[in-house]
Design a protein around this nucleic acid. Structure first.
Length: 462
RNA sequence: GGCGCGGUGGCGGAGUGGCUACGCAGCGGCCUGCAAAGCCGUGUACACCGGUUCGAGUCCGGUCCGCGCCUCCA
């Protein structure tokens, strides 16, 4: 089995072969830490987490380097500081830890490295220096600008040529630009704004240079995969390519470019100005993180995804059925984590450009097998197979009881529930079914669903 | 204007030219005191028009419709 990935660079699905199978290298654009992460930040985190898991399966857990940056210097952060007065260091520390909590709740593995931009300013300055020496950048009024016409191949990723960009005429026109398409590598900072000393005066980096500098630092000049949202293709990724290739004497940058599709919410284009975005933090107050993860994986990563509360309700119910089937079938966590054979039937669709919906269809087959199993030996085997199938997707990793009863929440008094169940059992034994049904209904009103099984009555939260 | 995406059954959503996607909802049955969960069975689809092919949802051309980007954005 081989991996094939859709490469934005070639607009084709291509067989994936890493440069070095002992160290497969992937860079993904992470969040700018100025606010809660929204669901649009969550999609690439989850999508590329699945790719990370897939690569680890193919090349070994110790042979994949996954870098996801934290942008902690940016005009939006400065704007947030000016709006609220909260110190910048506080804003970035607070939102960074919130982001980490969010992606952990979504079941994402921790990347190999999560470099922060402010910790890599020297690398950026070095790269900017090389670009100036090589004639690809110039200094103007305290700014360092990348000169776009100095790179003939500029525009290859987004497939636009230099003339078209001028025709667009929406590029910012400022007097110090030699060309309207030039973009900033370094800009001066006001005394009140964060800044670093540089050969061109006190200032701060432009948006794109950090990713070039940090990917180079952690992954080398040329690496395997660069991921991010589709909206980053232009100008962010185009400019990253230009900076990196020009700073590296024309040597290639990322070989595969992967982009996840747009997100809509409740049928509308998601946008900050419309205020119709969900933060992961808010969604987690209403839904389990795993339901959010499933909702994101039910659509292929390159397709637009309409993210709705109703979709989350559905995803939660789907997981109820999975965990309901798993309930009582796997004795211990050790058992679950033992060296289970990976499920090739799940890996295969994932290896074909991360077809998570097709992989989920296999999960449903495993679920049906488990539900059909009669003997306890069969059940145990089927349950392990289902758990193994869930692993590449990062699903079904928790204790079914915790999922079904929300056992981590203190809202429900288990002893009281058990008292109801016993009272109902007595009523049923006495064939007083109206009383039994009354007890069941009163629990349902509290959000507790009873299920009678041959082994007795169990309950779960609605 | 430039670049690009998509139109699949009631809904969501895959599809790597030839074999049931899958899930939800619906319908019939089994199980159950009745439910819930589960099991079995079942109907409904490829926007339109041409073309290539033994064969097209899948490839090519065209038409219609919807949408995105080109400005901070995952």
């Amino acid at each position: 089995m081989t991996i094939a990935l859709y490469n934005t660079l070639t607009r084709a699905t291509q067989p994936f072969e890493p440069l070095d199978a002992s160290n497969v290298r992937m860079y993904v654009c992470g969040p700018t830490v100025y606010d809660w992460a929204h669901i649009g930040n969550a999609r690439p985190a989850v999508v590329f987490d699945v790719l990370f898991r897939l690569l680890r399966f193919f090349y070994g857990e110790g042979h994949v380097t996954y870098v996801r940056n934290i942008t902690d210097i940016d005009d939006k952060i400065i704007a947030a500081h000016q709006a609220t007065g909260e110190p910048i260091a506080s804003i970035t520390a607070r939102t960074t830890s919130a982001y980490h909590a969010d992606v952990a709740a979504l079941g994402c593995l921790t990347p190999t490295a999560e470099p922060r931009a402010t910790a890599h300013v020297p690398e950026m300055l070095a790269m900017i220096g090389r670009l100036i020496e090589a004639g690809h950048a110039y200094v103007a009024e305290g700014h360092v600008m990348f000169h776009v016409p100095s790179m003939a191949a500029y525009g290859a990723l987004s497939r636009r040529n230099l003339d078209e960009m001028i025709a667009g005429a929406r590029v910012e026109v400022v007097p110090y630009k030699r060309d309207a398409r030039d973009f900033v590598l370094w800009k001066p900072s006001a005394d009140s704004d964060p800044g670093w000393d540089s050969p061109w005066g006190r200032g701060r980096p432009g948006w794109h240079i950090e990713c070039s500098a940090m990917s180079g630092r952690y992954l080398g000049e040329t690496f395997d995969i660069h991921g991010g949202g589709i909206d980053l293709i232009f100008p962010h990724h185009e400019n990253e390519i230009a900076q990196s290739i020009c700073a590296h004497d024309g040597r290639p940058f990322a070989r595969f470019w992967l982009h996840n599709g747009y997100l809509m919410t409740e049928g509308e284009k998601m946008s900050k100005s419309l205020g119709n975005f969900y933060t992961v933090h808010d969604l987690l107050a209403e839904f389990p993180g795993e339901a959010i993860r499933l909702a994101l994986l039910q659509t292929h990563y390159r397709q637009p995804l309409d993210f709705t509360k109703e979709g989350l309700v559905q995803a939660k119910r789907t997981l109820d059925r999975f965990y309901g089937a798993l309930r009582g079938t796997v004795a211990t966590r050790e058992d679950r984590l033992s060296d289970e054979e990976a499920d090739k039937e799940v890996i295969a669709p994932l290896a074909h450009d991360l077809n998570t919906p097709a992989a989920l269809a296999v999960l449903h087959e495993r679920l049906a097998s488990l539900n059909r199993a009669s003997s306890s030996v069969e059940k145990h085997r089927a349950a392990r197979a289902l758990l193994a199938a869930g692993e590449p997707l990062g699903l079904l990793a928790q204790d079914p009881e915790i999922w079904l009863r929300r056992a981590d929440s203190a809202v429900i008094d288990e002893a009281a529930v058990n008292a109801f169940i016993e009272a109902r059992a007595a009523a049923r034994k006495a064939r007083n079914f109206s009383e039994a049904d009354r007890l069941r209904a009163s629990l349902l009103a509290e959000g507790i669903i009873l299920e009678d099984t041959p082994a007795g009555t169990t309950w779960r939260r609605a």
